[in-house]
């Protein structure tokens, strides 16, 4: 994916300004920056989740395989099937684990044969490193799992529809350190098949788990802008921008 001069507005307010960001395929790109700098807003622009906010609008282009996802003839629903999302708080449906994973698949193919669906569910749960923990209780509600398991269920649900890109909006902020490490570990295997973008307010997480890092910051007019984009180790050992240096070394503000 590629953002070209993308600006995101809420009504007259410009939340994110002029972001040009190449997202490398099958790599993990982390977005970091202080609160309110538009990290999540930018992330949500990549699968048109901002469309759900009435006044939101995007200027510039965001390209997926060369096609602008904000072109007038593109349906947001179609975009979201190719660009999946995992949210800050684990939000499994209050349904059986099986149905959680199967839901997106059924939407796309209501008449899918049961064995095929079974296979997809198992494969997705395995992909999310959850299968061994839940294979005997697929009929139990997804909300009965622990927080970390719920989040992995959400990942399984997202990859079940076989997207190209996976967006993660602070996926570990509600989890304990062990569950967090598990998700990060999972991301390393997921990146073999998916392009991953992750917003995190945890710099260490960006450092640990990502290949590229985007540093964002709020301008005086309160619009978020991208101030640095580089390989993660570069950002964390030798950032070019003084503000990035201050931020990653904890001397911000």
């Amino acid at each position: 994916m590629l953002a070209e001069n993308a600006s995101i507005f809420y009504g007259a307010f410009r939340a994110v300004a002029d972001v040009t960001l190449p997202v490398h395929e099958r790599q993990i790109t982390a977005i970091i920056g202080p609160s309110g700098c538009g990290k999540s807003t930018l992330l949500r622009a990549f699968n048109r989740m901002n469309d759900l906010v009435q006044s939101a609008r995007v200027e510039g282009k965001i390209l997926l395989d060369g096609d602008n996802i904000y072109a007038p003839d593109v349906d947001a629903v179609a975009v979201r099937r190719r660009v999946g999302m995992v949210f800050q708080r684990p939000n499994p449906f209050p349904k059986p684990i099986y149905d959680n994973v199967a839901y997106g698949v059924r939407l796309g193919n209501p008449r899918i044969p049961k064995p095929e669906l079974d296979a997809i569910v198992e494969q997705s749960l395995r992909g999310a490193a959850l299968w061994d923990e839940v294979k005997d209780k697929l009929k139990e509600s997804g909300t009965a799992l622990s927080g970390g398991q719920q989040q992995r269920l959400c990942i399984a649900r997202a990859i079940a529809v076989q997207p190209d890109v996976l967006l993660m909006d602070e996926p570990c902020s509600a989890l304990d350190p062990i569950a967090t490490i598990k998700i990060e570990e999972l991301m390393q295997t997921l990146k073999e098949r998916y392009t991953i973008m992750i917003v995190t307010h945890n710099m260490q997480q960006a450092a640990r788990a990502s290949d590229y890092t985007v540093m964002m910051m709020m301008r005086p007019d309160r619009a978020g802008e991208m101030i640095e984009f580089d390989q993660t180790e570069q950002i964390f050992t030798n950032p070019r921008d003084k503000r990035t240096e201050d931020y990653v070394s904890g001397r911000f503000g």
């Binding site: 699968n47 179609a78 979201r80 999946g84 949210f87 449906f93 839901y103 997106g104 997202a158």
Partner: peptide, 10 residues
């Protein structure tokens, strides 16, 4: 819940 659903392309 709504976001989860929209996020899956519903």
């Amino acid at each position: 819940l709504r976001q989860a659903s929209y996020g899956l392309g519903a």
